[in-house]
């Protein structure tokens, strides 16, 4: 499983019911992301980028179609199985860091390890290492309100990688940051992809951010190419 983190979406349909209307977001959508790729998903708002990310992360389920991630079919998992699978395989980085204000940076990073059999000492060691990777060792005891936006996002990345997931899903991770800080965050993501083989899928509107990716998918043109797209709401 560690060697195969391919993300394969086959004939995915995703639609929402909005009042009496059915809004189609993804229509017979196909996509393959290979293990170790750093993919930037771009395109106009409302095209379904975040929906795609949520589907890959098991936060949402397709209306129909097949999703295989790391040789495991996930579209037919039950909620409890999804939760467990997500904890073991996926790390999320959101535009807003969603750190818990009552926990220190160390506490926030340790949180996902509560889902593992690690003991307290091991959890502390893992969290310290993750914070070191994102250059936040010296801020481990600080609370989110004592950190800058960039530092908070670094801690969020440390939280995403602390349980060593194969795949990182990032939803506009630099959307709230200035250019310099954004570049620092993107450099960390690129390092995680390059040095640790993490498969990264990043939704972004920022062309500069996309330059850090190994592949850029413009969803609008990609869907047109597939000739099966229907533009819907995100």
């Amino acid at each position: 499983m560690k060697n195969n983190n391919d993300i394969i979406l086959k004939d995915i349909n995703k639609s929402y019911q909005k009042g009496d209307n059915t809004v189609v977001v993804l229509d017979h959508f196909n996509l393959t992301i290979n293990s170790g790729e750093f993919v930037a998903l771009m395109g106009p708002s409302g095209l379904g980028k975040s929906t795609l990310l949520h589907l890959m992360g098991g936060l949402d389920q397709p209306t129909s179609g097949e999703m295989v991630i790391g040789a495991q079919r996930i579209d037919n998992l039950k909620e409890a199985q999804f939760t467990k699978w997500r904890a073991e395989n996926i790390g999320f980085v959101f535009q807003s860091h969603h750190l818990l204000p009552v926990l220190s940076a160390q506490g926030n990073v340790e949180l996902p390890l509560a889902l593992t059999p690690l003991n307290k000492k091991q959890r502390q060691e893992h969290a310290s290492y993750a914070l070191e990777l994102v250059g936040m060792s010296d801020r481990s005891k600080h609370y989110p309100k004592e950190l800058s936006g960039g530092q908070e996002q670094r801690v969020a990345i440390a939280r995403a990688i602390v349980s060593d997931p194969n795949i990182l899903l990032c939803d506009e991770p630099t959307g709230n940051l200035d250019r310099k800080t954004a570049n620092e965050i993107l450099a960390i993501l690129a390092q995680l992809n390059r040095d640790f083989g993490k498969t990264i899928v990043m939704v972004t509107h920022d062309n500069k951010a996309a330059e850090y990716a190994t592949r850029v998918i413009n969803l609008e043109s990609y869907m047109l190419e597939q000739n099966k797209c229907t533009v819907g709401e995100n």
Binding site: G57, L59, E79, A80, T83, K84, R86, A87, E88, I90, F92, F94, S96, H98, L100, L111, P112, A114, L115, R159
Partner: peptide
């Protein structure tokens, strides 16, 4: 709600 959603995304069970 965001905090709870984050917990769910991280993998905490319902």
């Amino acid at each position: 709600s965001k905090e709870i959603a984050t917990h769910k995304a991280i993998g905490f069970s319902p």
